[in-house]
C-alpha cells in the first residue's frame, strides 16, 4: 500500500464504502430517471409545445399532488445524480488540492441553493 503522507491520502485509503455506494446509487437513480425524465420531456416538449408552459398551465398542473411528487422526485434524483457525476469530473480534471476543494465547495453550495429554490418553488403553489 502507498503510505499516506497527507490527511487526504489517509482518507482516500481509509476503509469506506462511499465510492461503492455512490456507484450503486448512480445506476439505480439512473434507471429510475430514464423513465421519469424521458416521460417529462415527452409530456412537455413532444405532446405539447414548449410555449404551452405558461404560468396558468404550470400552476394548474401542479395543483395535483401527484405531479408535485413526480417533479420533486426528478428534482431530487437528478440533483444527486448530476452533482455526483460532476464531482467525478472535478476529481478527475482539477488536480491541485486547494483548487479542487474550492471548486467543490462553490459548486456544492450553488447546487444546494438551486435545490432549495426548486423545492420551495414547487411547494409554494
Amino acid at each position: 500500500m502507498i503510505r499516506a503522507r497527507t490527511f487526504t491520502d489517509a482518507r482516500a485509503q481509509a476503509h469506506s464504502n462511499a465510492e461503492l455506494n455512490w456507484w450503486i446509487f448512480m445506476r439505480i437513480s439512473g434507471l429510475i430517471l430514464v423513465f421519469l425524465v424521458l416521460g417529462h420531456i415527452y409530456m412537455t416538449f413532444i405532446q405539447v409545445s414548449e410555449s404551452d408552459a405558461t404560468y396558468t398551465a404550470v400552476v394548474a398542473k401542479l395543483q395535483n399532488p401527484a405531479w408535485k411528487f413526480y417533479d420533486w422526485t426528478i428534482l431530487a434524483l437528478t440533483m444527486l445524480h448530476g452533482v455526483n457525476g460532476a464531482r467525478y469530473s472535478i476529481e478527475d480534471y482539477v488536480r491541485s488540492r486547494p483548487n479542487r476543494a474550492w471548486v467543490k465547495t462553490i459548486f456544492y453550495t450553488i447546487s444546494a441553493v438551486i435545490f432549495t429554490l426548486g423545492t420551495v418553488g414547487l411547494f409554494s403553489i
Binding site: Y55, V59, L75, L117, G118, V120, G121, S124
Partner: peptide
C-alpha cells in the same frame, strides 16, 4: 431550468 421554473413563486 430549475431556477427559471422556480420563478413561479
Amino acid at each position: 431550468h430549475v431556477v427559471s421554473i422556480s420563478l413561479i413563486m
